[in-house]
Write a protein that binds this DNA or RNA. Structure first.
Lengths: 111, 111
DNA sequence: TAATATTAATTACGTATAGTAAGTTAAAGA
DNA sequence: TCTTTAACTTACTATACGTAATTAATATTA
């Protein structure tokens, strides 16, 4: 049983970020272009507004997401990916290919 | 605000799987080769035995991990990746490259 | 035979994170 | 000033996680 080398802290941080619940799917949705709060919420039905709000803050703090306020009536707020965020696109391609190859769905989900 | 197409269920399932806490790191550790319970636990210091046990079962149920029992004294149990599990390796390469490019560490973590 | 040692796994219990639903804030037009 | 609407926020409940003690299995030792 040989010991492991410790994890690269950058790698560990990236995994922490991306494997937090909902974070990956929120980024994935934003890959389609800027989205408003209700738009993201509507496309991820099991994600609560509370958590979406938290995650968007975290993503903004990490520099993956930008928040733009348009003082219209009612106020419009758009979330979009920064370059750092958009650069995750290949990762999602990768997951998509893996899923297409390996994930079997139960009959009920296939119709 | 155009509506989103619903997520591909395979993709969604893959994300669910991989973004569950600790799962990705456990798979990553197993990419080095077969590991025993204590070995994995030792390499991920903040992961409790309880959750490691749960995750290994889930990964086994999903067909990413194989569990081999060697009835020695004391019993030796080895966990290893199946082909489905090993096929996630490029994903981790991808995350590693993204992290190297984008993750800035606080001074304290850099020494 | 009984006590011991070792690894894997489970259980009980407290804390943390997430989900639900109702409430609040802010902006501008009526 | 009142209304409307999107974007939060809060109080509460439920689920997931972490810690530490415990159990199971099995061979070795006293």
């Amino acid at each position: 049983m040989e010991p492991h080398s410790p994890l690269c802290p950058r790698f560990e941080k990236a995994i922490d970020l991306l494997s937090k619940r909902w974070t990956a799917l929120i980024v994935f949705r934003l890959l389609d272009g800027p989205q408003r709060f209700v738009g993201i919420a509507g496309s991820l039905p099991n994600l609560s507004g509370k958590v979406l709000s938290e995650r968007l803050r975290e993503l903004e703090a990490e520099g993956l997401v930008r928040r733009d306020v348009y003082p219209e009536t009612p106020v419009r707020i758009e979330y979009s990916l920064t370059e750092k965020g958009r650069d995750l696109a290949p990762l999602f391609d990768n997951i998509g290919r893996w899923a297409a190859k390996w994930i079997e769905l139960p009959e009920d989900d296939r119709r």
